[in-house]
Amino acid sequence: KLPPGWEKRMFRSNGTVYYFNHITNASQFERPSG
C-alpha cells in the first residue's frame, strides 16, 4: 500500500508507470516508501 496521497499512474504515450501525490502535487518514478 502506498503512503497517504500517493497513487500509481501511467503515461498513455509510452506506458511508463509513475507515482503522483495529489496532496503535494509531487510526482516520481520511484515507488514512495512509507
Rank of each mutant, 00 (worst) to 15 (best):
I23S: 05
M10D: 05
K8T: 07
S33A: 11
F11Y: 13
S27E: 15
Y19W: 10
P32I: 01
W6M: 00
V17G: 05
S13E: 14
N25P: 01
F20V: 09
Y19V: 00
Q28D: 00
P3G: 04
K1G: 10
W6R: 01
A26L: 11
T16V: 14
N21M: 04
G5I: 01
V17S: 09
S33M: 13
K1H: 12
K8F: 05
S27L: 14
I23T: 08
E7F: 05
R31L: 09
W6Y: 01
H22Q: 12
H22T: 15
P32D: 01
F20T: 05
E7K: 06
N14G: 09
L2D: 15
P4K: 06
G5C: 07
L2V: 08
P3T: 00
A26R: 11
F29E: 08
Y19M: 00
W6H: 03
H22K: 11
N14F: 01
R12V: 13
K8P: 02
S27I: 15
G34K: 09
F20S: 02
A26I: 15
N25Q: 12
P3I: 00
R12K: 13
P3N: 00
P4S: 08
P32G: 03
N14P: 04
E30D: 11
M10E: 11
R9K: 10
G15Y: 00
R9H: 10
F11R: 13
R12F: 08
F20N: 00
N21H: 05
G15N: 08
R9M: 10
M10P: 05
N25G: 15
N25V: 08
F11W: 09
K1A: 15
F11Q: 13
A26S: 11
K1N: 14
P32W: 00
G5S: 02
R12L: 14
S33V: 13
G5N: 05
L2S: 02
P32E: 01
N25A: 07
R9L: 08
V17I: 13
T24F: 06
L2H: 00
W6V: 01
T16Y: 12
I23E: 12
N21F: 06
P3A: 06
S33Q: 11
T24A: 02
N14K: 08
P4G: 03
Y19F: 06
N21V: 04
R31N: 10
G15D: 07
I23D: 09
V17L: 06
K8M: 14
K1M: 10
S33E: 11
A26T: 14
R31P: 11
G5F: 06
T16L: 14
E30T: 07
T16P: 10
T24M: 01
S27G: 06
H22E: 08
E30Y: 02
N14A: 09
P32V: 00
F29Q: 07
F11P: 04
F20E: 09
G5T: 00
I23R: 04
E30W: 05
A26H: 12
Y18Q: 05
F29G: 04
L2W: 03
P3D: 03
K1Y: 12
P3E: 04
P3S: 02
W6T: 04
T24P: 03
Y18M: 04
G5V: 00
Q28W: 05
S33P: 12
E30H: 06
I23G: 04
S13T: 11
K1D: 14
N21S: 05
G34Q: 11
M10G: 05
T16Q: 14
F29V: 10
R31E: 10
K8N: 02
P3L: 04
